[in-house]
Design a protein around this nucleic acid. Sequence first.
RNA 1: CGGGGUGUAGCGCAGUUGGCUAGCGCGCCACGUUCGGGACGUGGAGGCCGGAGGUUCGAGUCCUCUCACCCCGACCA
Length: 490
Amino acid sequence: MAKEVNNQEENYSLWYNNLVTKADLAENSAVRGCMVIKPYGYAIWEKMQADLDRRFKETGHVNAYFPLFIPKSFLSREAEHVEGFAKECAVVTHHRLMANPNGQGLIVDPDARLEEELVVRPTSETIIWNTYKDWIKSYRDLPILCNQWANVVRWEMRTRIFLRTAEFLWQEGHTAHATREEAEEETLRMAEVYASFARETMALPVILGKKSASERFAGALETLCIEAMMQDGKALQSGTSHFLGQNFAKAFDVKFATKAGGLEYVWASSWGVSTRLMGALVMAHGDNKGLVIPPKLAPLQVVMVPIYKGEEEMGRVVEHLKKIQKGLETKGISTKIDDRDHLRSGFKFAEWELKGVPVRIAVGPRDMEQGTVEVARRDTLEKSVVSQAGISTHIHSLLSDIQDNMYQKALSFREAHTHRVNSYAEFKERIEDGGFFLCHWDGTAETEERIKNETKATLRVIPFDHDGETGTCMVTGKPSAQRVIFARAY
RNA sequence: CGGGGUGUAGCGCAGUUGGCUAGCGCGCCACGUUCGGGACGUGGAGGCCGGAGGUUCGAGUCCUCUCACCCCGACCA
């Protein structure tokens, strides 16, 4: 492990208990790997949604909603798409229950079998393109730039909280364009939106690039992705944007009349990020004291803890904190005064650290006398005593510092665990310690497959940003146009 | 679906070669003392020991069958 203490296994409950619980479904339930997102966890997701929505709208997109159920036949229209998803679909076969004639309880009414089974969407390309067929007649109807916030179900063999749950929340954008170029530009634009969201809002450094053919989305001609490094050195695909060519237009017969009077198939893109981002956030920033939430996503940015003895003193300290709170709120900072009087301050400190609140303010009688407050930052765990005058401004810029520092810290971590490796022998040895490996690769699926089988590492991303150095494949010695990133991944 | 492991209070666990009333820590409730980094005392509530069947005078403990969960593979965002 790249960083011994900060791996997911050890900090699993520390990081996740405030965000989610395992779904406590009834015995005998075949549903596995579902999660309950607690209010605190969901509040972070809502912040992510709001930020992403803003970015989507700035790039001209609108939200819509499409059905949860997809007729089975839709899925089979696009050959590669079915192949990719067929093995993990939840299927609805009946629409009614009845009292069990042989005893108590309910059984599925055998007379209520659906003529055509419905698939619970694993992704919505098919049902959306079935709709787009009706929406698109002319070049004047294009482009269509829709996004939907939804839940999807993928019946994975093995699940893992946030990273691979059977049901997850996400957004999926589905766009339709008149030209190939336009669709390709859109694909890149949205990958870039994801990259800047990750960097600016999540304080998560990501590598933007494309996937190899074997890692591509089922039905896509090109898949772009952002790839992040977790603190155990493993890679996490955090968002994808696909250029779908005319595959879905052909499968659903979506043509448009061109200005010149011709009839052409529509070009498409689709892109999505999911609650997996929550996992990325947690695993990239968490430490041994719990979560560390970047200020831009923190449901609560500043928690205020009064220090006091006795009810009378508590009243005075809390009143004092309320004044400070008012100042912070006028700067748009979210705050909470923790006035629970059955808990000691030390306990509260630990508890808010566990939740990852970026800044903690503590004020006691001593501070009130001296006109100071104690300010503690979650990212570095540093405490300082600052003057109460100008506290709002101080906190405001501190939050911004924390946001930047968290990004820089994660970036330094990634850089320290990214290695340029030229020999396959060295690769095999060092992959055991985790991290990203910048290697030359001959571009073939065979080599990729071999590396995967022998080392469990996969080709994560072919980065757009590279130094242009050419070389020879570390495995086969054949020519390589650029270095690519191999890593073990979640 | 293969290989391994675990099911006992809300959480984490102990429970010996079967033995009588099933325990501990944390948490929870009440009262009191505390209160600048996870306080302490006293009292209290909370269990069909995953489920079914068997062996036995007696099963948390042994046997059979099941179910669920966790870890490692195959599959995947």
